[in-house]
Simulated scan of single mutants.
Amino acid sequence: MPAPEARRGVFITFEGIDGSGKSTQAKRLAEALVAAGFEVELTREPGGSEGAEQIRSLVLEGDPDRWSPETEILLFTAARRDHLEKRIWPALEAGKVVICDRFADSTRLYQGLRRDGLREQVDRLHDMMIGTEPDVTFVIDLDPALGLSRAKGRQGSEERFEDFGEGMQRRMRAGFLELAQDHPERFILIDGGRPADAVAADVLARALPRLPAPVTS
């Protein structure tokens, strides 16, 4: 199944370092848009479909050196393709607002920063097997030390990338800021150091102008 040539819905992604609050803000935006009358599909990566969730457990659990960066790229791409086929593309074709917690930009940075030259491999695989970019990407920006502290405080089983430490967090933040500078038409930077309610209000105000009027019955 190739990527749809046209889509009726709007594809919004949330990015940011671990602990930035992007998952909370993705959920808050989905709830606000549903209340405003939009049809919304809230999902996440890695995961979002049955097959992709199985791959998620492989890449987010275990020792930080469990997989080589090259293997991770293949795993993430396989998960993303299944997610697109099973959830994202059908929802967009149905005219829904798709909100995804992480997408390809995270792969570009996490894997691309781990070894020189891997960013080009990520982009080539993306062009070959994915071919879909979000309409809008919110980057929830936060101090890396605070983000890592928040992420570690969750005490969940999916801590493999947090275990790379604050240095990786700082490189990730710099990478997101660079992507936002290079693609201002798609990226919207949001200050994540404020109370969650203030961040959510800011995100909603910036999202609404990018959306068509909701369908009313």
Results as ranks from 00 to 15, higher is better:
Ala79Met: 10
Arg81Glu: 03
Ala151Ser: 03
Ser49Trp: 13
Ala36Ser: 14
Leu142His: 02
Leu92Thr: 15
Ile130Met: 11
Ala79Phe: 02
Arg8His: 11
Glu159Lys: 00
Val215Asp: 07
Arg194Asn: 11
Glu50Phe: 14
His126Gln: 10
Ile190Thr: 04
Leu177His: 07
Ile188Asn: 12
Gly16Glu: 01
Arg8Phe: 04
Leu211Gly: 06
Glu53Ile: 05
Val34Lys: 15
Asp127Leu: 05
Ser20Leu: 14
Ala6Asn: 10
Arg119Leu: 12
Phe161Asp: 01
Val199Gly: 13
Arg8Val: 02
Glu39Ser: 15
Ala78Cys: 13
Asp135Leu: 03
Lys22Gly: 01
Phe187Gly: 00
Arg170Gln: 12
Gly16Asp: 01
Leu211Arg: 11
Val34Asp: 15
Trp67Asp: 03
Arg119Val: 03
Arg119Gln: 04
Arg66Thr: 09
Asp18Trp: 08
Lys86Val: 04
Leu211Trp: 08
Phe76Leu: 10
Gly156Arg: 09
Gly131Arg: 05
Val139Thr: 11
Thr43Ile: 04
Glu185Met: 03
Arg81Ala: 09
Val59Phe: 10
Ile99Met: 04
Glu159Thr: 11
Glu15Val: 02
Trp67Pro: 00
Arg56Tyr: 09
Leu118Asn: 06
Asp202Thr: 15
Phe187Leu: 12
Ile73Ser: 07
Glu166Asp: 14
Glu70Phe: 02
Gly19Trp: 13
Met128Asp: 14
Ile190Pro: 00
Ile55Glu: 00
Val199Ser: 11
Gly51Trp: 06
Arg114Thr: 08
Gln111Trp: 01
Gly131Cys: 04
Gly47Trp: 08
Leu146Ile: 14
Leu75Arg: 00
Ser23Tyr: 11
Glu39Ala: 15
Ile55Gly: 02
Ala205His: 07
Arg80Asp: 13
Pro214Glu: 14
Asp143Gly: 13
Ser68Cys: 06
Asp116Met: 02
Gly48Thr: 05
Thr137Val: 00
Glu15Gly: 00
Arg114Lys: 15
Leu179Trp: 10
Ile130Phe: 12
Arg186Gly: 07
Ala94Asn: 05
Thr137Trp: 11
Leu33Pro: 09
Phe38Ile: 08
Leu42Asp: 13
Glu93Gly: 14
Val10Arg: 15
Leu146Phe: 12
Ser68Arg: 03
Glu162Thr: 07
Glu158Ser: 03
Ala26Arg: 13
Asp197Met: 06
Val98Met: 05
Trp67Glu: 05
Ala32Ser: 11
Met1Arg: 01
Arg173Thr: 12
Leu118Cys: 08
Ala196Asn: 14
Pro134Val: 00
Arg80Met: 08
Leu29Cys: 03
Ala200Thr: 06
Glu31Val: 04
Arg44Phe: 09
Lys152Phe: 06
Gly47Thr: 11
Arg170Met: 15
Phe164Thr: 13
Gly156Lys: 07
Pro144Ala: 04
Leu92Asp: 09
Ala205Trp: 03
Leu211Asn: 11
Asp182Thr: 13
Leu118Asp: 06
Ala174Ser: 10
Gly16Phe: 07
Asp116Val: 08
Gly95Asn: 11
Phe103Ser: 10
Phe76Cys: 06
Gly47Val: 10
Ala91Phe: 01
Phe14Leu: 08
Gln54Phe: 07
Ala180Val: 08
Ala201Arg: 09
Asp197Cys: 06
Ser23Phe: 10
Gly16Met: 09
Gln155Lys: 15
Glu31Thr: 07
Asp116Arg: 01
Pro212Cys: 14
Glu85Tyr: 12
